[in-house]
Design a binder for these strands. Sequence first.
DNA 1: AATTATGTTGCGGT
DNA 2: AACCGCAACATAAT
Length: 283
Amino acid sequence: MPELPEVETIRRRLARVLPGKKILQVEALHPKSFLGSEAQLTGSTITDVDRRAKILRFKLDSDYSLLTHLKMTGQLIYVDKDQRLGGGHPTADWVQALPSRHTRITYQLSDQASLFFNDQRIFGWMKLLPTEEADQLFTDMAPDINHQAVTVDYLQQALKRRTQSIKQAIMNNDIVCGVGNIYACDALNIAKISPHRPANSLDKIELTTLLEAMQQVIKEGIDLGGTTFDGKYVDISGFAGGYQHKLRVYGREGEQCHQCGGTIVKEKLGGRGTYFCSMCQAT
DNA sequence: AATTATGTTGCGGT
DNA sequence: AACCGCAACATAAT
């Protein structure tokens, strides 16, 4: 579920509570969820929490980093010694059920804090990697959408030979990272560009508009703490985000376009549900 | 029962 | 080489 704004929201919350905490015990409840040696991780202290694209990283005081990809249904829930959520919020009934049916990894931290990695579909993972390799991995990835390296010229260069649809192109992690299905749909609506347009058919003015729209929705997503449907994405306290109340087109099939009053339609494009306005985003 | 789900990866084909 | 489309991963809700 999480796209860049959701992962960044989690990062910001964890960055307030994890640095300085020592990992006293790790228990992988599902073999596909934890990659690496639990013994290697145990005893390390978390020094920092950063992020690249949709990957979270806990930097450790060893030469290793713990990387996390939440994929579609991953969650990280933090509970402190007083059972307070995210370290500061009152506890809730569901906390008693942790680890739950969907908890794949549990962490016992110093100061009697706990971290739970929940993941219904088991697509996500947490992986222990030498920090040097993690750095290289991050360096090799295409730039994040909100990074200064993503300019109109960069997009024009990257897209000039691409015949796939513009929507698939902006979700393509070889071109830019961090734009998932929700924010791709919304950005194209703001820019009034059809998701079906071949990527190489957009002129410089359209690319400028689209880039600004992508950066805008990503910023709004972060400012509002992400998008929550069905309680699947939640922050480290189990709280929903706020962008779902501001969605332009995603999930709004049959409703009116905020920009032009046209009807929002849903189609399958590149295997993903794609929402757009049949009027101002007509091909 | 079939379809759908906020994501990636790896394969075969062009 | 670069690019494209699609199946696969595993689970639960509608």
